[in-house]
């Protein structure tokens, strides 16, 4: 048991240099603004004096290394600078909008796992059947579909043609009241408030964007599940298990799937990377008030502090998700910690 504990502690420790690297890169990105960063932050209507003032205020007249430490100190205090367009601190804007993005992304990932993993298992257990062909089609189509285009097609079909989806504008139609803020996740908050109408309204708004993202993330998971199940099923221990007369269910789920799960969980890391990127595009299509559309709005008005804050926030979120995935390994894989140093 202690071996496992050490391994988990080691894995958490490994995240630290990655976080440092992420911070260094975002520092470089904030300082690599085109032209003079001070002029950028001062805005369009700046005089030479006000630019000089901004330069001093931002500490841009100091040596680069010192600037980096000031940047780190500000980060530790949760200061990502001020947004030019709204005048509010970037951190509070991001924090206010993060639940919307997380609700969308996590729902989509949940849906896509719920579909693609059984699909991959079925395809692997019946190679060449129609399920396998369907899996192959979905996998090839899924990686070729531009997320923003799928979203637009879904809006056209389900909103304009069929009229069964609500208008693609935000998290909740204006006829509903926002549920009292507890977690920021409308699905959870409306359940806590026992407001089933709002819950229904939230689900209705969520279906199309979540489907768009799920379609995009289906392909890699289904592909990896199928491949991993195929290789697990052809392994010697499965032959032994079958020869020992274990039930089909036990062989399939107790032995093959449990082993196939490891590469699938590893792929999830890559899928998260794509999903967080696709999130930006989906949020723009559906006018979803998350951090992705915040960053897009900020890009349009050259609000660089907001964009860089968004990039850093996304990277930290991704590092955190990867850490969670690796820790999930320790639960799934009983070998974890025994072979690791």
């Amino acid at each position: 048991m202690s071996g496992r504990g050490t391994a988990i502690a080691l894995r958490i420790a490994q995240a630290i240099p990655v976080v440092i690297g992420v911070v260094v890169i975002s520092f470089v990105l904030t300082r690599a603004l085109p032209g003079d960063p001070a002029a950028q932050f001062a805005g369009i209507a700046a005089t030479p004096e006000s630019i000089e003032e901004v330069r001093r205020a931002l500490g841009l007249d100091k040596p680069l290394l010192q600037q980096f430490f000031i940047y780190c100190a500000q980060l530790l205090q949760g200061d990502l600078g001020q947004s030019i367009s709204t005048g509010r601190p970037v951190v509070s804007e991001l924090a206010a909008r993060l639940p919307a993005s997380l609700e969308l992304t996590l729902t989509a990932l949940f849906v896509s796992c719920a579909i693609s993993i059984p699909l991959g298992i079925l395809a692997a257990t019946r190679p060449g059947s129609w399920v396998d062909q369907l899996c192959r089609l979905l996998v090839t189509a899924g990686v070729s579909l531009p997320t923003f285009f799928t979203g637009i097609v879904l809006v056209y079909v389900f909103y304009y043609l069929l009229g069964i989806a609500p208008s693609p504008l935000g998290r909740l139609d204006f006829v509903y009241l926002e549920p009292p803020h507890v977690t920021g996740f409308f699905l959870i908050d409306s359940v806590i408030a026992r407001d089933w109408e709002t819950f229904g309204g939230t689900v209705k708004q969520l279906v199309l964007p979540a489907t768009t993202m799920a379609l995009f993330t289906l392909a890699p998971i289904a592909r990896m599940t199928r491949a991993a199940m195929l290789s697990a099923l052809s392994a010697d221990f499965i032959r032994t298990a079958r020869a020992s007369g274990l039930s089909r269910r036990k062989v399939l789920y107790g032995y093959a799937f449990r082993n196939a799960l490891l590469p699938v969980v590893t792929t999830l890391g890559m899928v998260f990377s794509f999903a967080l990127g696709a999130n930006v595009l989906v949020e723009k299509v559906f006018a979803w008030p998350g951090i992705g559309s915040y960053a897009v709005e900020a890009l349009v008005v050259s609000d660089y502090a907001a964009v860089q804050g968004f990039v850093l926030a996304m990277a930290l979120l991704f590092v955190f998700l990867n850490l969670v995935i690796d820790l999930a390994y320790s639960v799934i894989d009983p070998r974890f910690g025994t072979s690791a140093k």
């Binding site: 690297g21 890169i25 990105l29 085109p34 990377s273 794509f274």
Partner: peptide
């Protein structure tokens, strides 16, 4: 290490950040 750090970003988001910066 440098490559790992690049991969630590969601790639599309990093591309957004780079274009915004450059």
């Amino acid at each position: 290490r440098c490559l790992d750090t690049i991969m630590a970003f969601p790639l599309f988001v990093l591309a957004m950040g780079i274009v915004a910066a450059l």
